[in-house]
Amino acid sequence: MPSRSPRRPAPLPSASSTRRRGAGEPPPGLFPTREDLLRLLAVLTIAAAAAAVCSRLNRRPEPFCDSLRAPDEYDYADDSCQPCPQNGRCVGGQLECVQGFKRYGASCVEDGLLSQTATKISELLHLRICDQHARALCGQPTKILFHKHDVSDIIDELFSKNPAGLTEDGIQLVKARVLESAQGFFETTFTSNKAEAFKCPELVAERHMPLTCQIRQWISRNVIFVTTICILFAALLWILWIIYWRRALSNRAEQIYEQVCEILEDNAINAKTSYSNCEPWVVASWLRDHLLVPRERKNAFLWKKVEELILEDSRIDQYPKVIKGESKVVYEWQATGSLSGKIKKKVQGARVEAIKLADEMSACVGELLQVSSAEQVCTSWQTPRTQADQWR
């Protein structure tokens, strides 16, 4: 085994080295260590917390100062009581909030009922006063200036109709808020005796005016414009009426003209038959009175329009003729072989009927010859037979 070298003992400090160390640093154990400081701080914190909790638990709540006494009667230096908060009533050290407020700690906070009621009453008040001003703008005799006591009376009247279940304290609070709102909404003016009065703003009052009143005032402010529009509208209606009247007159004249042509054609056909005593002409005045109703005879333009259409028709001849010693204007159909489809159908229908009539009479004559009185019977049918032969 290797041999170990013996330790040498540390040299003893000399007197000079001991003297130098004592002069430069403190001796050990003079200051507490870091662990000792942390333990001391923890003990102090726990002691302070325990003292605060005990003080809080043993402390009694301070009573509220009686609201019936004046605030300057209390000496708040000794903290004998808490001041009674606004909108609260303190009796016997206890706090009770007025209606519309609820307790929150040592104060009274509004619960919304008063604000809703004040808003509703304010709207009714604005409506009442602005309606009065609107009627004044429409020319009706009414009141537009309201003193403070008048506004207060109106608020009381509105409360009587809408109590909202408030107590007297709540009503007073709402009334104060409504008055404050009125001062901010209405215009403030002064009467002749220097009294303050409220007035609804004119722009707001105009919104409450009835529609008829607004239209009337707008017309009065724009008389020239409205008059011009009315004149132009009336002229337009008159022009439209004239156009409609002329078109209706033209349509009626064309209708009468067609009837005149049919009558003249029929009269010309009847005059050409050997058994007819009809004249080929027709008096114009007789034709007019026959075709026009009494109301239309008063309209000279209607028959004048018909005469213009007749003059433009080359098939109709117009000339004067003396009838019973009086000169008359007559019309005569001059066209031949140009009958209208209606007249042709009439002539063809008459011919077919005549042929059928002749055939029936021939058959009847054959049967009657077998009877002893056949000659008398057949004699009565000779005239129709002759007419049928003429049609054939």
Rank of each mutant, 00 (worst) to 15 (best):
R7D: 12
A15W: 00
T18P: 00
R19D: 05
R20H: 11
A23N: 02
L30E: 03
F31M: 08
T33L: 11
R34V: 03
E35M: 01
L41I: 05
V43E: 13
I46Q: 06
S55I: 03
S55Y: 11
N58R: 11
A70H: 08
Y74N: 06
Y76W: 10
D78L: 13
D79M: 05
N87F: 10
N87V: 00
Q94V: 09
E96Y: 01
C97H: 05
T117P: 01
S122T: 15
L125N: 03
R128I: 00
D131E: 15
A134H: 14
R135V: 00
A136T: 04
K143E: 13
K143Q: 14
D153A: 14
I154K: 06
I154P: 05
I155T: 10
E157D: 13
G170E: 05
I171N: 07
L173R: 15
A176Q: 12
V178A: 04
S181Y: 04
A182Y: 02
F190G: 00
K194P: 00
A195Q: 12
E202D: 13
E206K: 15
E206C: 09
M209E: 15
L232S: 11
L236T: 08
I239K: 01
Y244W: 13
W245C: 04
L249Q: 14
S250F: 06
D266S: 06
A268I: 02
A271H: 15
S276P: 02
N277I: 11
A284V: 09
D289N: 14
L292W: 06
P294V: 07
K304C: 01
I310D: 05
I310A: 05
E312N: 11
S314T: 08
R315V: 03
R315N: 08
Y319W: 03
K321N: 00
K328W: 13
E332P: 00
E332S: 11
K344M: 10
Q348C: 04
Q348L: 09
Q348H: 08
V352K: 07
E353T: 04
A354W: 01
A354D: 00
I355E: 08
K356A: 14
K356T: 12
D359R: 09
E360D: 09
M361P: 00
S362V: 15
V365R: 10
Q370A: 06
S373F: 13
Q382V: 15
T383L: 11
P384K: 09
T386W: 06
Q390I: 12
